[in-house]
Each structure stands twice: as structure tokens, then as C-alpha cells.
Design a protein around this nucleic acid. Sequence first.
DNA 1: GCGTGTGAAGCTTTTCACAGCA
DNA 2: TGCTGTGAAAAGCTTCACACGC
Lengths: 211, 211
Amino acid sequence: MVPSRAARSAPPTTIRRLSTYYRVLGALHAEGRANASSRALAQLTGFTAAQVRRDLTYFGTFGKRGVGYAVAPLRRRLAAILGIDRGWRVALIGVGNLGRALLAYQGFGAQGFTVAAAFDNDPRMVGAAVGGQTVLPVERLARAVREQRIDMVVVTVPAAAAQPVVDRAVAAGVRAVLNFAPAKLQVPDHVELAHVDLAVELEYLAYCLSR
Amino acid sequence: MVPSRAARSAPPTTIRRLSTYYRVLGALHAEGRANASSRALAQLTGFTAAQVRRDLTYFGTFGKRGVGYAVAPLRRRLAAILGIDRGWRVALIGVGNLGRALLAYQGFGAQGFTVAAAFDNDPRMVGAAVGGQTVLPVERLARAVREQRIDMVVVTVPAAAAQPVVDRAVAAGVRAVLNFAPAKLQVPDHVELAHVDLAVELEYLAYCLSR
DNA sequence: GCGTGTGAAGCTTTTCACAGCA
DNA sequence: TGCTGTGAAAAGCTTCACACGC
């Protein structure tokens, strides 16, 4: 029973591709390109032209027949759709190697995300200046999340430490978690969760090579 | 036209979940648990019990009705299926922050992957000892890939540098690439490619928070 | 002519629900 | 009784192919 007129909402796969369109539109914009066809975007992203067109139609009609899409306006629209035209405030939990690497990651700010706090359990880390942030003890999480109006946390602690720090963050009002720890995290329904798992990627490749 | 008897091959989504089953079976094994039901595995991984059972049946019948799955044997079988019971030789290209973080990542060796070489373009990096490896210049890639019998490369260079180094690696015989650079990489069909994209994950969360 | 927007078809993946075995 | 293994249904996603507007 499809409600006959209601626009179907975009699948998660589409959202993730939008992010890539946004990036290549940035490159095209920098090159001074005014228009790009679905074929051109497909070429640059590795998706198909049909996917590009379908993905965009979930959100409106942005193209001109016979011409393609206007690069700069489409890019702005995608920023608004993805919600990266506002500034999201991010906290990093776990200032080990990976955490420091992510703090140093240049694209962070450029993409509308500000790292506004950093935390670690290790007393030797607390107080250190890392990537422009003074590292705070995890006990300070709740207070800092509220005072710094943190929207999301990036978790780069060891697996065993992940759930407790996420519980603290969620209790303090964080609404999204990007987890790099190799552990399944429980969060309430109203909190968004994404997981990046190095082992899964490596083992997927190992599987492919083993065939 | 389904060939009536041929077992359908496992979808990529299944393979990626196997990797997670493998991890939680390791934890259960360490706890001394002998058996685990699909429901228990679902609980620990965040997938559904039906998914667990379906995923495993692509590769055989491992469970006992009324009992569940024997932890240690299933874990060994998954290692064999994923191909992580042999030792894969990995090279890291790009020894910046992220590269060094991944070199330091402990789980690497434990999971059957050996980082056997590290490369960087920056002359100040070349010769440095990082994570037990002497950093080599990228010109040495082809020779090192052959001499060190490298199976896969992990790419942690800036976006603009990614395609050229991957071309070198592929030309030298590398068969799989794990790309952390925010760039679309072209590789021939016989080379496997996986992509981890921090911006995609962050922007996906931003989208969810914007609804 | 070119390239978008889109129904419809096709494919993949998940979920249901239950027969059958320990 | 408990839990697997699995057809069948449902849902989700991609691809096709073409009408339509520039």
C-alpha cells in the first residue's frame, strides 16, 4: 500500500553518496566548471549516472534537461540537505594515536565540523594540548558536553572502554556517535550511531583475495 | 532462472558481518563459553538472529538444533572462510598522522595482517623508523612490493596523491587496496578496493541530526 | 540532439514463520 | 522444549529505458 503521492524518502545509501557528490562538486567548482551532467558526476564518483539522477530526485529537481546540473547551486543545496551548512560541534573521546590523527585531519573544520573538546582517561594525557584542545579527563564529559554544546562524539578509545564513555556522553545529551572502537555500542533510539571498523574492511579484502 | 541446486553465494553484507561474528566469538571463547545461539550472537553484534543463521548457512551447517553454535570450531571456520588464517602482508603508503596511528593499531597483527613495509613521499619521513618499519620513498614501492610479497596496501596519503601511488602499487602486483584518502580510486577489475571515508560518516550523522 | 526525471522491472538483502532435529 | 536451517514473502535498492523539456 504505497501512499500514492508521498515522495519516498531517501535510503541511507543515497545519503552516503550525497556526501561524495558534495565533495566532487567542490572540486568542479574550484576548477570553474559551471555545469556537470549525471554522467560526469558518475565518472568522478564511481557510481552510475542513473544513481546520480535518482539520488538527487529524492530531494527535488535540480537539473536542466540537455544541460546537466549547475555546480555551485547544487553544491549549496547538498550542503543544506546534509546539514553541513551549520557548524556541528564535535568532541573527541580517546586521544591515542588514532584520536590524535583525527584531530589533525585537516578537512574536519572545512566540512562544517568543529572539534570543541577532547577527552582521555589516561592521567598522562590530561592537560596536554592536542590539536588546539586541552585534553580533559573523562569525568568532565557531562559538564563539557553541556557547556560546549557538543552535538556528536567521535570515539577512539579501546574496545573495552567504549560503552562506558558513550553512556556518559549520551546521558549528557550527545545526539550522534561515530565509533572507531571495535565494539558494538548500545545507544538509545534517539541517538544516531555510525561505526568505522578497520578489521571489517581488512577482513573483507582478505575474503575477496581468498576466492 | 535460478540454477536449481547451486548454493547462492554470500552477499558482501554477509561477509562484513562474518568479521564481526569472528570478533565476538573471540570474546566468548576467552570467557570460556562453549556454545552460543543465533540469538546470543545477535545480541552481541547488533544484527538479528535470522541474519546470523542465514549468514552462516551460506557456508555450511554449523549449528546444533536446540543448542546453538560451538564457539571455538565456528570461530576457526570463520577464520578460514574470511581467509585470515593465513598471514596477509600489508604495506602502508603515507606515514602522516593517520598512517602512524594505523601502524600503531594493535589488532593489526593479531588478526593475521603483517605490516611489512611503509612508504612516504616526504623526504623528512624517509628513513624514519615508524612502528617497527623503516619508511621508504615511494619510488621503492614496486621493488618492495615484489621483494616483500605485499598482498595489499593501506593508503593514507592526501587525496591528490592517492591515485598515482595506487597505480604504482597495482603495477607492482598488489591485489587489494584499503583507501582512507577522500578520493575515488581507479583500479583494474582484478584488484579489490575498499574505502573508508571519514567525511561520509560525519556527514551521514549530520544528515540524521538535521531531520 | 542531449540529458534529466521517472515509472517499471530486476536484483539484492532482510524478515517471516515454521518444519524438523537434538 | 529450544534452536537451527530454509523456503517464501517482503522490503530495499539499483538499473533500464524512454517521455519530455531545453
